[in-house]
Simulated scan of single mutants.
Amino acid sequence: MARPPRYHEAQLLDTALRLAATAGPTAVTMSAIARAGGVPNGSLYHRFPHRSALLAQLWLRTVEHFQQGYLTALHSDPDPLRGGAAAARHVVAWCRDHPQEAAVLLHGPQAFGRDEWPAESVRRAEEGNRRTLDALAELAGRAGAITEADLDRAVLALVELPLAVVRRHLRTGGPLPPHAEDLAERCATDLLGRLG
């Protein structure tokens, strides 16, 4: 009977997450993870054959966790303005509750070596992005979006502005202000109300 693994993938990714959040994506090396996690190199390479596979998995785990909650918020109300407001609030609230993960997402996939990811990881990332953008476009359509400019306004309202609310604070290590969710919601509702 095989021995159960001593080092689980989630533990290794948690170590990589801490390194990325505190020192940036370039700090996430195989040797740094092994040192920080007290993991033998062989165990690390058994789970991840190379650094790009580990970086891809770290990104995917983080972004899929975010997208799952974001899509739930986006579909939380049949009224597109209320659903959009919930999605904008979710961006800020999720970043408040998951500052390390938010720091990873703010770097973007290219900083995590997206051009060198395994093909399956690229496919997963593209599927998740497509699913999220399709849901956002559907909500924007229900809110009155007709043109490409309308869709751009919806992306600004539901993604870019909420991220702008948190970016400055997360980059400086300061706490998000208590009114951050309200600010994101008000901006989203105002812009979505002007579609069409």
Rank of each mutant, 00 (worst) to 15 (best):
G83T: 07
P40L: 12
D182M: 14
R171A: 14
Q57Y: 08
R3Y: 06
R194K: 02
L81C: 10
G144F: 02
T132N: 04
S76R: 04
H75T: 09
L106W: 15
E64D: 12
F66H: 13
D190E: 07
L54K: 00
L161I: 05
G193F: 02
Q11E: 14
A135C: 06
T172D: 13
S43R: 08
T132A: 11
A184Q: 01
R153F: 00
A73W: 00
T147W: 01
E64I: 02
R194P: 00
E127G: 03
R168S: 13
D152W: 10
A27H: 07
L60K: 12
R35Y: 01
L60W: 13
G144C: 03
G141H: 10
E126G: 12
P175R: 01
Y70M: 01
A149Y: 07
L192C: 00
H46Q: 01
G38Q: 11
L17H: 13
A137K: 13
N129T: 12
A73P: 06
G141P: 02
C95P: 01
E9L: 12
T72P: 00
A86T: 04
A34F: 08
Y7L: 11
V159W: 01
A85C: 02
E101V: 07
H50P: 14
A93E: 04
G193P: 11
G128R: 09
P99M: 08
E160R: 07
A87F: 00
A86Q: 03
P78Y: 06
G144T: 06
